[in-house]
């Protein structure tokens, strides 16, 4: 039986207010600047805000699913055509820059406020498709087809890796961490292999920024474990991303 009238994952009330909140957050300030410096600041702010709104409207008019990350209000929303499908509460945001031999590379200009496209899970969520050849047709009235097998649950079907990214074309990736995840859940050897694997991929990515899987900027998000799992299991392919800029 369902939960009637209860909040969905991520909080229904926050999801309810999502569009209005974004619109409100992006709404112009009522105060009228006195002119000169104040007016210049206001014009710049509104210019930035409208730029973001244009992208927002563009995404809401498209056919792709999109994520909207607001680092200031700590929310990550999965949306389609202006509808908030899931609202994940972000518990922490960190920005990762590549560095080579202790020299940190600068983040690409305008990484906040631009639209990132073709976001896909790394490692991908694989779906094992069962291929069945139907039995030859029979007109025997007593024939009973074999009972169907009970398929696995989504949790069994899509095990969530301990570390995963959503990588977008152009070199941005979202990296997800579970809050309070106990590292002792895996064996020591497994943890070492995972650490070595991730170090190796980080090294490669930092050393060769032109590689297709290199990250020029990483946004590390800490979420509740169930939200991380839900996002990995549900994220549609080729998702877009908009990271709302500051000083809106």
């Amino acid at each position: 039986m369902a939960n009637l009238g209860r909040s969905g994952p991520g909080g229904a009330r926050r999801a309810a207010a999502a569009i209005l909140a974004v619109a409100g957050a992006l709404a112009p300030q009522p105060s009228m600047p006195g002119g000169g410096e104040d007016a210049r600041i206001e014009i710049e702010r509104l210019g930035r805000e409208n730029g973001t709104l244009r992208k927002y409207v563009e995404m809401a008019s498209g056919k792709e699913f999109y994520l909207v990350l607001d680092p200031d209000s700590l929310s990550l929303r999965l949306m389609l055509r202006g509808a908030v499908l899931q609202d994940y509460r972000v518990l922490g945001v960190e920005i990762g820059s590549p560095r080579v031999a202790f020299v940190v590379r600068e983040l690409p200009e305008g990484w906040r406020g631009r639209t990132w496209t073709s976001g896909n899970l790394v490692p991908p969520r694989e779906r094992e498709r069962m291929e069945v050849e139907a039995p030859p047709p029979t007109s025997d009235p007593n024939y009973e087809p074999p009972p169907p097998t009970i398929p696995p649950t989504p949790e069994e079907l899509y095990p969530v890796p301990r570390r995963f990214h959503v990588r977008f074309a152009g070199g941005l990736s979202l990296e997800f961490l579970r809050k309070g995840e106990a590292d002792t859940a895996a064996g020591r050897w497994t943890r070492f292999l995972e650490w070595a694997g991730s170090r190796w991929s980080d090294l490669r990515s930092a050393l060769d920024p032109s590689a297709p899987d290199a990250d020029r900027v990483r946004v590390r998000l800490t979420l509740q474990p169930r939200d991380v799992d839900s996002l990995y299991r549900a994220l549609p392919p080729d998702t877009e991303l908009l990271i709302l800029p500051e000083n809106r």
């Binding site: 202790f102 020299v103 500051e246």
Partner: peptide, 13 residues
């Protein structure tokens, strides 16, 4: 010293 270094939100360009 090679890889990724994480920090808070930097000011946007």
């Amino acid at each position: 010293g090679t890889g990724y270094v994480y920090g808070g939100l930097p000011p946007a360009g």
